[in-house]
Nucleic acid binder design. Sequence first.
RNA 1: GGACGGGUGGGUGAGUGGCUAAAACCAGCAGACUGUAAAUCUGCCGCUCCUUGCGGGCUACGGAGGUUCGAAUCCUCCCCCGUCCA
Length: 321
Amino acid sequence: MTSLAPLLAIVGPTASGKSALGAWLAGRLEGEVVACDSTQVYRHFDIGTAKPAPDERRGIPHHMLDLLEPEEVFTAGEYRRRAEAVLEDLRARGRLPVLTVGTGLYLRALVEGLSDAPTRSEELRARLDARADKRGPEHLHRILARLDPAAAKKIAPRDLPKLVRAIEICLLAGRPVSEVYGSGRPRLAGFAPIKLGLMPPRAELYLRIERRVQAMLECGWLAEVRALIARGVPATAKPFQFIGYSELRAHLEGRMGLEEAIQAIQQATRRYAKRQITWFRKEPGVEWLAGFGDDPAIAAAALAYLEKHLAAPRAAGGKAV
RNA sequence: GGACGGGUGGGUGAGUGGCUAAAACCAGCAGACUGUAAAUCUGCCGCUCCUUGCGGGCUACGGAGGUUCGAAUCCUCCCCCGUCCA
């Protein structure tokens, strides 16, 4: 049996300094950064997704960035497949994977796995969406209740995306979702995750979010969006739904004032950070640090913790996570 | 000085005698989430007490009085704000 290789995951809300800490730690621990972020996989959407710029990468290889063109669709399952390949490569080369995790679902999909469920079907979804449009999301909830009462009970009647996904699985798999989920999910093999969490005080985080939005604009965010529009990326492309991109597009097309757009972006980012915090709080086995990842004291604490735990990766990984 | 309009909970703002601790929205807080997740959805949101209940008490609609069984809602005076006339 192969021994478990350590894998470091840095979780935390947006703007908490994950990228900075990740690159710094990777430099000190013979590691490479593996982004775990649903937005940074898109090419050309750089500034607003806070994708680490070349100088911020400290010469460390970064993986799982710039994988897709704006019009492509990406999923948690696809993330897992590609990230596993990256991890195998790092293991073969004896490098420590340092995951910078903004998207909690992707980390979970990677580490805990996804059930063996059918992938999304655009045709089926189009039909379900049309029915929801006509008769309301509650109608889909009633359908799900017939297909799988237990699953329906766990999804709010108005939660359209989750209803669609659940019905999709029932129909495509030919059996209830709860049964599909009940048959387990394949954990990531061969790695023992160590999780570090960044949790700065809320007020400071919000302040930093506000400043970062300003800084992104000063770095040419508007020009980036203008170029994307000029290049013909449609407003319906997924990355144009990301925080900031829709607002700045609206501004450039004369539908929103700049100041109004900035405030909307800051607001949306704060709410996003809050949702991330809710998700990460229940992430098991996280060592929490109460500050920003670019704070030298926090970085030092992180390194000290890792040096202690990397010395005995099997012991650390052997514990129930 | 005069004529109107207006002052409501953190914000915007509805409410013209009881069903109103006060709509709605926003902000905020808490939570859910196994393939679009920077998505989507849920709950709470004056203070307080407990036997946590469609429970009790207190405070609240600029201020002070008054009418009424009962007032954010009606009356009187006062203080602010906006517009217009002098």
